[in-house]
Nucleic acid binder design. Structure first.
Lengths: 243, 243
DNA sequence: CGCGATTTGTGCACGACTTCACAAGCGCCT
DNA sequence: AGGCGCTTGTGAAGTCGTGCACAAATCGCG
């Protein structure tokens, strides 16, 4: 018939979340001159288990060669295709305060498939400011610019109080994916994806582990000993990069 | 007989990751003058399912009242205790570039249990700079300052090339939790926790969903299309969002 | 040409997390 | 006091993700 390759396999979310990590590791390997890589080596570079990596890659059709490994360049193409990175996606950044300023200047976006196509803010005092070669527009201009630049992804870096309203305006302007840095829950229509990054939450999670570690030390090996699975004590045989 | 408060229950990781979200929602409710809240209402405010919320809270001893709900103030205390937020934790921030600068000025840390106690950079040109009331120190000073300030949490906002070396120095200085913004895998000894935030990865995950949505629209019901490796056909069939 | 070394792809069992559904508990009203 | 409505806490079932272990496939070499 016509096509062999499935258009876009339904990938497990967990796999999707790891593909970018593999991609980064692969680019690194390619720059180091590697043509092929084994699942073991790539897994180590990406900080995961090799079986998991093979299963992840198998979901997207598997282009490895048994006894040899994966072709680095081919795998890069594969993953970039699946992630939709075959062209640069235009991104709108709303909120040019402290964090937004930094995001606007972050080189990592440009080098990994994205182009910040427009900056917006609601504060007239900020409109007109030049950042990294872009001029800050007023948020009222969002609809036209989103249309003109084919923007489908928006980043919210405003205070939490403004975030929902900005999200609504982004959606109205045709944005269907939002990355939210504001510490609040956004409600959006079906079909719009939201991912959230909350810096304080990350620290609070670490704080929990600090607290737990401290309390474990405070309570020596006395009575309880509880349900600590097997001998988590001193397993010298550690090799995987922990995380 | 003796202990009223369970030392520290073993919480599922997924639960730990949601507790900060509940906490934020609770603070919001408290400011709005609510004394009690039902699991349904709190779940909505935190963006989760109410059964999940109840199960999460039940893990930490459950202080709800049937027929009424949860006491907001009590629950805040409970969660803050479990997360180890009963005192402000000192944080060291390494790397005062684009992103580090923004993080140093981010008010959300201060208002949610953390105190940025020191800024470090390796670039002598940056040492001495004042940011938000703090002076940037050279990274060589890390050991003494970490000791003096009892710093157990470190944030890495350096380029990827420097991140592993910074992590090693943080660990050597007694840091046991690291929040890593550099796009690379860190390897650390057992007992040290690492969390990673990669801004480009978040966008790439959104990009995948964009790609999938676009391909679903492009393919009404038909089978596959899409050329793969050899061609990487520059599919001009991408969205046109504004329609 | 066949053999052994190597590495992928995957069936399967296990564990973690989610969701449903409901009994048990609590306060309020009569 | 007793019943009723509301809400929590949780058993149980279902879903998802992980990791092991091994057969299948490929390459290099004698």
């Amino acid at each position: 018939m016509s096509q062999q390759v499935p258009a876009l396999p339904d990938l497990p979310e967990a796999t999707v979340a790891r593909l970018p990590e593999y991609l980064r590791a692969l680019h690194h390997l390619a720059e180091s001159g590697n043509d092929t890589v084994s699942s073991e080596a790539l897994a180590a570079a990406a900080g995961v288990n090799s079986a998991k990596l093979r299963k992840d890659l198998s979901h997207l059709g598997s282009y490895g060669t048994r006894g040899v490994g994966y072709d680095v360049a081919l795998l890069i193409d594969q993953i970039e295709y699946v992630l939709g990175l075959t062209h640069r996606r235009a991104v709108a950044l709303v909120g040019v305060g402290n964090l937004g300023h930094a995001l606007a200047g972050y080189a990592g976006f440009g080098s990994r498939g994205f182009r910040i196509a427009a900056l917006f803010d609601a504060d007239p005092g900020r409109v007109g400011e030049h950042i990294n070669g872009l001029v800050v527009r007023h948020i009222d201009e969002l609809p036209e610019i989103a249309e003109a630049e084919s923007i489908a992804i928006g980043v919210i870096a405003t205070p939490a109080t403004a975030a929902q309203s900005v999200a609504d305006r982004l959606v109205a302007a045709g944005v269907t994916s939002i990355l939210n840095f504001a510490p609040c829950v956004l409600s959006v229509p079906d079909g719009v994806d939201v991912r959230k990054v909350d810096l304080a939450i990350e620290l609070q999670i670490l704080s929990f582990h600090e607290h737990r570690k401290a309390s474990l030390i405070a309570l020596p090996a006395a009575g309880g000993l509880t349900a600590l699975p097997g001998g988590l004590a001193a397993t010298g045989t550690e090799e995987a990069v922990g995380s």
